[in-house]
Design a protein around this nucleic acid. Structure first.
Length: 477
DNA sequence: ATAGGGTTAG
């Protein structure tokens, strides 16, 4: 039994020996987290002061460790710890960490946790400032909790904290995105009463909300109102309205607006950018009016605005869905690449992915192979899609050959470990021992982590082939 | 505060 293979392929959580460097880092993280978690557990009152006395250099992995140690009955302390950590000047939570905290503390499922924590601040007369409240609001934002965010906003006065435009903007955006425009509108009016002014961000959120609700007139009304508060309509806000008009289906009006944006007398403040053009292109493609989408691309190029990956993706899919011939596609790709901003690799990869999504596998394979022949490096997503398809078709050997070729090209990609596992398993089952061994070695080199279930299956498959040579290859390496 | 198809690492 090739024990070394099992132990090396299994997930790290089940492995006993991480590498030396990560082990060292792991230990320092653990000891800091241990101390903080200890404070958190033994604390009877004023948690924040206790935490500060631990005098620990915080980083995200340490914060993560502390949160992970919390039992569900400690989630309140956990949340207080997270909020406290965010208020430190030496540390700033990333968006990722906010999401992570919401996840670990199950805030989406139990949003009342936020309320309990705010109440405990009040009961224990903890020091709370704008920063504290902003962190709580950001959490609500990550968890998409509009009602709780509003509740928090209402608690500001109890701590003698004044809500600022940033706080209002956050809550307004949550309600606008939810489509609850009445509450969002009420909050804007309220800002006025407390001496705050809506800014471009406030207006953009509202306009976006109105557009999503199909209320373009309301969006325009707000856009006109902006100047009253010294806010100037900019490209982003205008593009939002344009997007709304596109969604409403009035493409002629959309083109008029685009022309309006292109006029020079706006001082360039609303001049369309790649996103603006892409929105219009996308709308035309969705309506199967690809010729007009292509005209917008030309228009974009004439103004020196470069298409990007999204523009390319949308147009390529549009052309393919329109059942155009290969010539139309290559003409488009040539044009995109010539305009700059997008590479041949991105275009071909995008075409491959689109075709696979459209279940036009033969064409996808042809284009993928063409890419390799022409020395163009496919991206990770395209590789993953092609490999998955080949495995589904049980063409494991073909897949392995392609895999080897891609390896040589040094694709900076993330081909799932799952696909690797399925391929390895397939090669074993079809008796391609030499190839299986080679793939396994490459996986080991990559320090790839596999699910235990996959490893078990692979070992099982190996037993069936009874290939002693293969066994020895696995176990010696 | 910007669209989308899996980017990184946190």
């Amino acid at each position: 039994m090739p024990n070394s293979l099992i132990s090396r392929l299994v997930s790290p959580s089940l492995r006993s020996q991480p590498s030396k460097i990560s082990a060292l880092r792991f230990l320092t993280t653990v000891s800091a987290a241990e101390r903080l978690y200890g404070q958190l557990q033994g604390c009877t009152s004023n948690l924040e002061k206790e935490l500060a006395s631990a005098n620990v250099q915080l980083d995200s992995s340490c914060i993560n460790e502390v949160l992970r140690r919390c039992d569900p009955n400690q989630f309140q302390s956990g949340l207080r710890f997270f909020i406290w950590a965010g208020t430190l000047s030496s540390h700033r939570h990333s968006a990722y960490m906010y999401t992570k905290a919401c996840d670990i503390l199950k805030i989406r499922a139990k949003p009342d946790l936020i309320k309990y924590v705010i109440e405990s601040y009040r009961k224990e007369e903890c020091f709370v400032n704008v920063k504290t409240m902003r962190i709580v609001l950001t959490l609500c934002n990550q968890a998409n909790l509009a009602d709780e965010a509003l509740w928090v906003l209402r608690k500001f006065p109890e701590f003698n904290v004044c809500a600022d435009t940033v706080a209002y903007n956050l809550v307004i955006r949550l309600f606008a995105d939810k489509g609850d425009l009445n509450i969002a509108d009420m909050l804007i009016k309220e800002m006025d009463c407390v001496g705050l002014y809506p800014d471009v961000i406030t207006y953009t959120s509202m306009i976006n909300g109105y557009c999503n609700a199909g209320k373009i007139d309301e969006a325009w009304r707000l856009a006109k109102e902006m100047s009253k508060h010294d806010c100037v309509l900019n490209t982003v806000t205008y593009s939002r309205i344009l997007e709304g008009v596109c969604k409403s289906g009035d493409m002629e009006r959309a083109l008029e607006l685009l022309a309006e944006m292109e006029k020079e007398d706006g001082g360039g403040l609303i001049s369309p950018n790649a996103v603006t053009y892409t929105l219009v292109i996308q709308a035309f493609c969705e309506k199967r009016r690809v010729e007009e989408a292509l005209l917008v691309l030309d228009r974009m190029g004439n103004r020196g605005c470069m298409p990007n990956r999204v523009t390319a993706c949308v147009l390529i899919q549009g052309v393919l869905e329109n059942d155009e011939d290969v010539k139309a596609l290559s003409k488009l790709i040539d044009k995109l690449v010539k305009l700059g901003g997008v590479s041949l690799s991105e275009c071909f990869s995008s075409a491959t992915v689109s075709l696979i999504r459209m279940k036009r596998w033969e064409e996808a394979e042809k284009i993928f192979r063409l890419m390799l022949v022409r020395g163009v490096r496919p991206d990770g997503l395209a590789c993953s899609h092609v490999f998955r398809e080949l495995c589904l078709l049980e063409r494991y050997l073909d897949c392995f050959l392609l895999y080897q070729e891609i390896e040589k090209k040094d694709v900076k990609s993330t081909i799932d470990s799952d696909i690797h596992a399925v391929l390895l398993l397939g090669l074993c089952q079809q008796g391609n021992s030499w190839e299986a061994a080679k793939l396994a070695k490459s996986m080991l080199d990559k320090k790839m982590r596999l699910k235990v279930s996959h490893v078990e299956k692979i070992i099982e498959a190996l037993k069936k082939t009874g290939d002693e040579d293969l066994m020895s290859r696995f176990s010696t390496d």
